[in-house]
Design a protein around this nucleic acid. Sequence first.
DNA 1: TGATTTTCGCCTTCTGTTCGCATTATAGTC
DNA 2: GACTATAATGCGAACAGAAGGCGAAAATCA
Lengths: 201, 201
Amino acid sequence: MLPLTKRQREILDYLSEFIQNHGYAPSLEEIGRRFNLSSLATVHKHLSNLQEKGFIRRAWNRSRSVELVPARAGGRALELPLLGFVAAGHPIEAVAGSETIAVPETLAGKRDSYVLRVKGDSMIDEQIRDGDFVIVEDRKTADNGEMVIALLGGTDVTLKKFYRENGRVRLQPANPAMQPLMVDPEQVQVQGVVVGVMRKY
Amino acid sequence: MLPLTKRQREILDYLSEFIQNHGYAPSLEEIGRRFNLSSLATVHKHLSNLQEKGFIRRAWNRSRSVELVPARAGGRALELPLLGFVAAGHPIEAVAGSETIAVPETLAGKRDSYVLRVKGDSMIDEQIRDGDFVIVEDRKTADNGEMVIALLGGTDVTLKKFYRENGRVRLQPANPAMQPLMVDPEQVQVQGVVVGVMRKY
DNA sequence: TGATTTTCGCCTTCTGTTCGCATTATAGTC
DNA sequence: GACTATAATGCGAACAGAAGGCGAAAATCA
């Protein structure tokens, strides 16, 4: 499939977003308005180009008949850095060099995500086992029940489930053999949230 | 594939990063600006060299038409077909259309692979939960302990662990609430072996 | 009939290609 | 080590074709 130009990518992204939000495709006029194009001919040409390159499909002369071709809509793959290992109660061990690992775009939250390899079975009840790769979205806050990479007291980094309770924070391992940790909010710092898991046999 | 010079490696890395971030390739002018090259001819020559060495592809005289050749591009994600759902004791439900999903090359088996979505918790003790994507390598035989997609009596398709025992075959769900299945080798046909798992939160 | 999509010419800007020439590497040979 | 052929890297200018854009008219669809 042929590569896109800058403008074509912008328009394709807009189509994707519009269809996602509305459930139907925008009209030529709507696309033109979005990009300040006064001529519909321009819009039409763009769509024709996108179709020729295989990114969209159109029914001839039908209103709002633009469809995204699924292979592309499914998304590309990102190359995310594999930063190291994470285990309950131990700091992250950085991996030497700058390794990366391919992750489907559908699994990665945003572009500023990274990957850690899980050591140990502290999250076994959440179906995460030793050796799994977790995709972590880099952010500083988490909602209840999300799985987080948390920094404790400035030293320990752990993988736990995150809960806010009565003004305190409960860090819950998903392993019956381990105890939950109750800490003050000031002592815990969320480094990122797990948004995906990959495992290789 | 031929070795790269230092300069060529730098440029290839830049191309890779740019395409990753923008979804389209940089223009010659943009590449030149990044490396302080005042002449587009220089950039053009670099790209020609990279193409000759097999690292990139270009459409002739097309804007931003540089593509990284998958093998060496560092990248490496395959677009595998998402065939449908699989659950213990039920046939595969085919998904309408020809959906695909991106899978890191490291997760996919060597041969033709495909992806199924897991329905139900029959493999919960193997850390596979409802909604997970399993990457299946298409082959007809399995070793003891491997997780297989098995066809039973020509009708039922299930996801189970595979064991050969005393001339018979044991199909073991990884859920204490479910019973193992003992069958004759003639009755069971291995469709594929699970080589990877992906999960999205 | 009104809302949209298609088509037609024409224009401007962006981008890739080519040509000739100069300056380092790099590797092989005497 | 000196010498040499070759590849890599670099410059600037000229050029051609692709991409992006316009307005209006024609064609379709609902």
